[in-house]
């Protein structure tokens, strides 16, 4: 049934339009409040507008400093490994991939030992932005859903956090590929 026909149907059955029903609801709520000696004046819009006033804020400077040091530190460690592999005559691309795999392995290990969540809590974006964040996003639901079994638990839910990263990465890559293909055709 189309939405408009459905609405007509409901109107015919109840004898009231949606607006009338909403008005009636408001009226009965007012009648109910009128019976009370006093009722709370609560302006939802104003409440939400001023919610932030006086609210505790994240310690921005501390968070940024931690993110900078830990994130930078991870990248520095990666760069050192990368240069080590290059000096061992590994080709550029392989060296890069090996570094990523090592970071992912270390993240998986620390996550499994229950240490990574404390590091992430301290570092914030510092562990989120490097590939460690992606790895933790895959490993943590895997460990968490073990109780639901290896297939429907771990297997199905391993991507609950990291799935969007893969989807949007691959999809935007495909869109770029299509555009690039058309570009090559035309020029």
């Amino acid at each position: 049934m189309k939405k408009s026909t459905l609405i007509l149907h409901i109107e015919a059955k109840t004898g009231k339009t949606k607006e009338e029903r909403r008005e009636n609801g408001k009226k009965s709520a007012l009648e109910r409040s009128a019976l009370l000696k006093k009722s709370l004046r609560f302006d939802k819009a104003a409440y939400n507008r001023t919610l932030g006033e006086g609210a505790p804020r994240s310690p921005l400077l501390r968070n940024c400093l931690a993110a900078f040091l830990v994130g930078g530190g991870i990248c520095l460690f990666a760069e050192a490994l990368f240069r080590l592999f290059l000096s061992l005559a590994l080709p550029d691309k392989m060296a890069g991939q090996t570094v990523s795999v090592i970071l992912i392995f270390l993240t998986a290990l620390l996550t499994a030992l229950g240490i990574f969540d404390s590091i992430g809590r301290f570092a914030g974006a510092g562990t989120l932005v490097p590939v460690t964040g992606f790895a933790n996003a895959v490993v943590s639901p895997a460990i968490d859903t073990k109780s639901e079994g290896l297939v429907l638990g771990v297997g199905a839910k391993i991507f609950t956090v990291a799935g969007p990263v893969l989807l949007f990465g691959v999809f935007s890559g495909a869109v770029y590929g299509l555009l690039y293909y058309l570009f090559l055709l035309i020029f």
């Binding site: 969540d117 404390s118 992430g120 809590r121 943590s140 859903t145």
Partner: peptide, 17 residues
């Protein structure tokens, strides 16, 4: 946490609220 938020081992910061 499992029902409403993120996996227990997920490393992230909690908001001050």
């Amino acid at each position: 946490e499992r029902q409403f938020r993120l996996p227990l081992e997920y490393g992230g910061q909690r908001s001050p609220t």
